[in-house]
Design a binder for these strands. Structure first.
Lengths: 218, 218
DNA sequence: AAAGGTCTGTGACTTAGTCACATAACAACG
DNA sequence: CGTTGTTATGTGACTAAGTCACAGACCTTT
């Protein structure tokens, strides 16, 4: 647990004095996959620095449809908890661990102290905030203006492993994109018809990534 | 110009010492309606506190369609410039003054200093950040999950003056909602057919706000 | 009164989302 | 090994929304 700070280049570069504020008040926590990190109506109680694993931040509609807003990975901070922390606000989004997660938890007080004293830490936090707003704005752009086949192709490429395979259901893909399962099914059928993917129950293999890439960026 | 700080309850409540940091580095600026406050590719150079007027923050697609993300009004801060300021990041969104605007501009250095020294100022800034993320997430929710007639009704109520009138074109309404002019036109026709609005060139009068409200919140 | 701009209307068409099912693949059990 | 239940996927008919190519209508200016 010593040395976790090295995983955050911006933090590692801080002077010893400021690093100490963080290190002295840090607690390592482990969360199994599927844990709800934050949800509407729940107030956050600490600042989270992700060491390992991935958190998915998504929004759920009244009718039960979902859409993924962004993901937080290792070396990043979960700014939604930060936001709740600092503004005592509630959010409509929820955060769920997609994998087992190891994170550093820093108390509200130590966080506030670090913000006050360390310009470098401020930069880190604001930069992460900016990135997230940027991410969410990008989602708006996609949902409002992009065609579904393009968005689907992009998401498939994003989620596929190096071999081009992904283990995912149509429903899960629909939740990624904020659409309905049937729609994803039909789009996938069309991609299969063109020979760009191979479909089977619970998994998809990308067989022509160039073509998909072309669709995704065209 | 003395006493502008009174317009921001959170700032007015700060101890004299912290208020001085802001006041001593504040400059009043005036922007005519239609000014681009920030845009893709432009770096912000100062922190903005809006005294009077309104800024519209919107996103434009490659094909030229637009969608309004949120508005900044008097007593609020323009956090997009803040974000650019602190993270040296660029955004795809743009901010345009909808009315003549009077704002307080605070230099990057003074802003950073105030963040460092004043817990109250930190709270204000983070709270505004949180609100904006929340706003943008709400737009995602609307665009992805809500029906257009409902969104249109809500927007009409939002933009109408106390008498229920609004001066706006179909194209402008389409840009509010991120859709196409023809679509808005047809939706408005349907509302007119039901007797809930009266249409004329360049303006709309709401004739049954209860019904519209019912549609908007149903 | 003519000209030119802006705003609005329309029909035919494509794309996306909804609903109510049917079918298929898998897993677990006796 | 079949039976049963669960999860995943497929389908057709329908509604909602977006696109495209225009045609008018309204307003201002000269």
């Amino acid at each position: 647990m010593v040395g976790w700070i090295e995983q955050f280049p911006e933090l590692a570069a801080l002077p010893e004095e400021h690093r100490r504020i963080l290190v002295d008040h840090a607690a390592t926590i482990n969360l199994p996959a599927g844990t709800t990190v934050f949800a509407p109506g729940r107030l956050a109680e600490s600042f989270l620095l992700l060491l390992k694993g991935r958190i998915r931040v998504q929004q759920t509609s009244a009718s039960g449809r979902e859409i993924v807003l962004y993901r937080v990975g290792g070396g990043e901070t979960c700014i939604m908890t930060t936001a709740c922390l600092l503004a005592d606000e509630l959010y409509s989004a929820e955060g769920i661990t997609e994998t087992d997660v190891t994170a550093i938890s820093i108390s509200k007080e130590a966080f506030d102290d670090a913000i006050a004293r360390s310009p470098g830490f401020r930069r880190l936090v604001f930069s992460q905030y900016s990135h997230r707003i940027s991410d969410v704005m990008h989602v708006v752009e996609e949902v409002a203006f992009e065609r579904l086949d393009k968005r689907l192709a992009a998401r498939l490429l994003e989620l596929a492993d190096p071999a081009g395979a992904l283990t995912i259901t149509h429903q899960e893909l629909a939740s990624e994109l904020g659409t309905a399962r049937e729609v994803v099914g039909r789009q996938l059928k069309e991609l299969e018809r063109r020979g760009w993917v191979t479909l089977s129950r619970g998994s998809i293999v990308l067989t022509d990534r160039d073509k998909l890439d072309c669709l995704a960026s065209g």
